[in-house]
Computed example of a mutant assay.
Amino acid sequence: MLLAIDAGNTNLVFALVDEEHRIRTRWRIATDPRRTADEYAVWLHQLLELEGYGRPDVTGVIIGTVVPRALHNLEVLATKYFGHQPLVAGQGAAEWPIALDVDEPHNVGADRALNAIAAHAKYPGELVVIDFGTATTFDVVASDGAYRGGIIAPGINLSLDALVAAAAKLPRIAIEAPDDPHVIGRTTQSQMLSGIYWGYVAMIEGLVARLKTEVALPVTVIATGGLATLFDANTDVFDAIEPDLTIQGLSLLYRRSVPAA
């Protein structure tokens, strides 16, 4: 099976993926570029055993990262503990199989290109992929699979952190869908939740509407990332939710780069 590693700014996701691109299991750990290959190995070996797997079950490794400082230790993990030279998404044999039709293609984040690959493989036509991560990104994918650009906005947790840090009397609150559908809050906490949550819903709907106008063709809107389901109940802007789009993109890229795998 393939060990797919998605190294994001906040978390790293390790997933075992079979030949049919089905995710058998996944684990998440906080991103820390200082974490060594040995530390990863101890943690991951224990989790593999808990799920009934061992290191010999891993037949290949691919890494997608937006944190360059984390890459070296992940490569050492793959070679030292799994005996495989990993592919790195966007490099060498794992060069992008899609056009990056933007002014600075070398600056496109690996996660965004991987999302585009996976979304295009699963859905026809013009696409908008919204990824709710550390940042919230909106990416336009053409019907031929080309990445056309998009939008980067602060993630909802970043927005909340900035609000709490800048206003001494505001408490930290949990991000959740409000129980009350009214936007007028009656307490400090409910007012904050209304501003963060409904403000974010308004941003999503407004930006998607503008993207659809610019694309000027029928568009399928796909949401991914851990917070996608948080908004789904209170907006009809999403046509589909794909929680594991980046991992699926890593799997597809690996199989295309190593045809015999």
Rank of each mutant, 00 (worst) to 15 (best):
I156R: 07
N157H: 15
S159K: 09
D161C: 03
A162P: 05
V164L: 01
A166Q: 13
A168E: 12
A168L: 06
A168T: 11
K169C: 11
K169W: 04
K169H: 14
L170C: 10
P171V: 14
P171E: 11
A174H: 08
E176V: 13
A177W: 04
P178T: 09
P178C: 11
D179Y: 10
D179Q: 15
D180T: 13
D180V: 10
P181N: 04
H182C: 12
V183I: 15
V183Y: 09
V183G: 02
G185D: 08
T187G: 09
Q189E: 15
Q189H: 14
S190C: 03
Q191E: 11
L193M: 08
L193R: 02
L193P: 05
G195T: 13
I196S: 06
I196R: 03
G199M: 02
Y200K: 07
Y200L: 03
V201K: 00
V201A: 03
I204M: 05
G206Q: 01
V208W: 01
A209N: 04
L211V: 14
K212Y: 06
K212L: 06
A216L: 05
A216F: 06
L217M: 15
L217D: 14
P218N: 07
P218Y: 00
V221K: 07
T224H: 05
G226T: 10
L227I: 07
L230H: 05
F231Y: 05
D232A: 15
A233H: 09
V237L: 06
F238V: 03
F238Y: 01
F238M: 01
I241V: 09
P243Q: 01
P243S: 11
D244C: 08
I247L: 11
